[in-house]
Amino acid sequence: MKYALVTGGSRGIGREIALKLAIDLEYPIVLNYQSNDAAANNTKAAIEDAGGTCDLLKFDVSDQQAVHTAIDTWMSEHPDALIEVLINNAGITRDGLFMWMKPEDWHQVVDISLNGFYNVTNHLIQKMLSNRYGRIINVVSVSGVKGTPGQTNYSAAKGALVGATKALAQEVAKRKITVNAVAPGFIKTDMTAEMDEKDLKRMIPANRFGEAEEVADLVSFLASKKASYITGEIVNINGGIYS
């Protein structure tokens, strides 16, 4: 049985990606989340209502031992399972000017976005290589492509993930594993709920915030066999914002 694992999948963009992979590509979903049980169960129910299947896997992506334990336990319970699609979506923001940034605000953001990518991907890549097929898609950000003031930590973490995407893609391409990233701009989620959309959309050529479903549509395509010749790419989805 072939599965898709989505990290940070209980809400926002992650939730929509999980739904889209279940509906469009008919993947059974392994949904990772860190703490919000209610949101995770709600997403699981939505996937099942749409005719899909979903297993919940609760762990902190920044905790390597927790990652290994959770995935290995799930694998032992599903001996015929293969996670062939991995969506590294987990991420947090701790915004503030760099000169006043606390060490914990730097480390937490880097640990989840960047080290979380390492912890999960490194643990799964061997089986993908053995199977000679896989899709790894990293959710980065416009902040990681152009840099955003007040988000030096987030820009650093996502920018590093951009570089990791391009490097890993070259290492595994011969085994029919693609590694790409999507870089959303302003998307309507809990993360942007407190932003002034009316004011900010003036800087967006499309004159609106994006929808999480639009990001999920892009991820679904990159996760499909139709995207087999696309790898090492960072696909911007931001309504026309560029540096």
Rank of each mutant, 00 (worst) to 15 (best):
L82I: 06
D105S: 10
E16D: 12
M99F: 11
H123D: 06
D49W: 05
D63P: 05
R175I: 00
D105K: 05
A173I: 14
Q108E: 12
Q151K: 00
V215I: 15
D63V: 00
L222M: 09
L168E: 03
I230A: 00
D217Q: 09
N131I: 03
H68Y: 10
T93A: 04
D95T: 01
L82W: 01
M101W: 01
S155M: 02
L222R: 03
E233P: 07
R135I: 07
L82D: 03
K158V: 00
S62K: 06
G210Q: 07
E104C: 06
W100E: 14
L86V: 13
G96L: 01
W106I: 00
A90F: 11
A169S: 14
P184G: 04
W100A: 07
A70V: 02
N42A: 15
Q34T: 08
V172P: 04
N122A: 07
A46C: 10
P28D: 02
G51C: 03
D95R: 00
A46P: 11
E48V: 04
A81P: 05
N89Q: 12
L168N: 11
G240S: 11
K158N: 03
S35V: 09
N42F: 06
R175K: 13
A193T: 00
N88F: 12
V139N: 11
N36I: 02
D95H: 00
V162C: 11
N180R: 04
